[in-house]
Design a protein around this nucleic acid. Structure first.
Lengths: 201, 201
DNA sequence: CTTTTTTTGTATCAAACGATACATAATTAA
DNA sequence: TTAATTATGTATCGTTTGATACAAAAAAAG
């Protein structure tokens, strides 16, 4: 790409990961440029040259989060054959991810942009889109189970998908309030135990 | 109390209610003094004379919210005799309150202070205390049901209370994302349907 | 009356905010 | 070499932030 001129003196990916930690912990509005540049180990002009602006940096952080932590949480939903076990594994992965001791608790996406005054419109839209996509993923997994004959076609897939996405989002708040892995696992187990009642089994 | 001096020219309670709307919609950091004074119909010196500072105003708003909207949501939990119906009513009241068309969607307390950088320490502590108290209220209701012989003593009351508080918190995020009363009711119904599985019935 | 007390509106404060101007340094291309 | 290009550090920009100083206004107390 750009080979001419003075080379960048920092690792762009490493800096982005540092920025993710800051935004994840403090939120968009709560993270000042000073917080970010300090954590990233660079000065403002380097940040603006490499990422554009604070908003663009946040959007890029969102994609990084989705690609790494997000994938970690959601992969089991597709890979586990039995639908109830798949959702159970997905919720346990959520409990695990949300209580990692070396990371901010809860989900960057679930907790972001919940107040209109604290994020820009593009960020709010992107966050809402990601959260809506979570419901879609769950619904499609349930539809697959119906297609495979594992669940009756009479179930309300949208309602059940919304239920599990809502439980997961609530787990982010629980994790932020200091809920440990044990507490999160109880919620995951409880929601899994509800599966039969929800699917009319 | 203070009868001497120039009388206040605005309704303190009405102004507090306006402030609640702003904080509820935009969050603490997202609400500027200009937003607040504009909505309250007063100038900064009047705000500071009547409420102290932005932080104190928010804390007072929290109490108002808890006393009004909060009571609206939680009263059924105590008044309904049957514990499953009590929790069901509590969740339906939540669904109703979170989707009022003339109010911000979701709960001021559930959505507040989720990012350390966006609130002061006293506010974060007060919000966490309120949310922890929600779990206590649910646990005590379950303990009452056990004492009344409605549920077996073998159940994990803390785990079940945490589950329902978590579902309720998730409903705030769903409501913020545009989830309507129908979607919220589905979640409430689903969580209520899970009651028997959770209580080993 | 006059004095005292409190509130009000205007105008503004110092600090923090996101974002840049600018000169210098470091690299490639000619 | 020289020119062109890009990144860096310092220092600072204009705005917005939460919060006040101040004088005028409006009430009760003496």
């Amino acid at each position: 790409m750009s080979e001419r001129g003075r080379p960048r003196s920092f690792d762009r990916t490493a800096a982005l990961e540092r920025a993710m930690q800051v935004f994840w912990e403090k939120g968009y509005e709560g993270s000042s440029l000073a917080d970010l540049t300090s954590a990233m180990g660079i000065n403002p002009p380097s940040l603006y040259a490499a990422f554009g602006c604070k908003e663009a940096l946040y959007l890029e952080v969102m994609e990084l989060y989705s690609r790494t932590i997000g994938t970690e949480i959601w992969s089991a939903l597709e890979t586990v054959p039995n639908v109830k076990e798949a959702i159970g594994s997905f919720l346990l992965a959520t409990a695990r991810a949300y209580s990692q001791p070396d990371q901010p608790h809860g989900c960057l996406i679930a907790l972001g942009g919940l107040h209109s005054g604290e994020v820009t419109k593009p960020i709010c839209d992107a966050l809402c889109r990601h959260r809506a996509d979570n419901i879609v993923k769950l619904r499609q997994r349930l539809e697959r189970a119906v297609a495979e004959g594992e669940l009756p076609a009479s179930i309300d897939v949208e309602a059940i998908a919304t239920f599990y996405a809502t439980v997961q989002n609530g787990m982010s708040i629980l994790a932020r309030d200091g809920g440990d892995h044990r507490a999160l696992k109880h919620v995951a187990d409880g929601a899994t135990a509800a599966f039969d009642a929800l699917t009319g089994g």
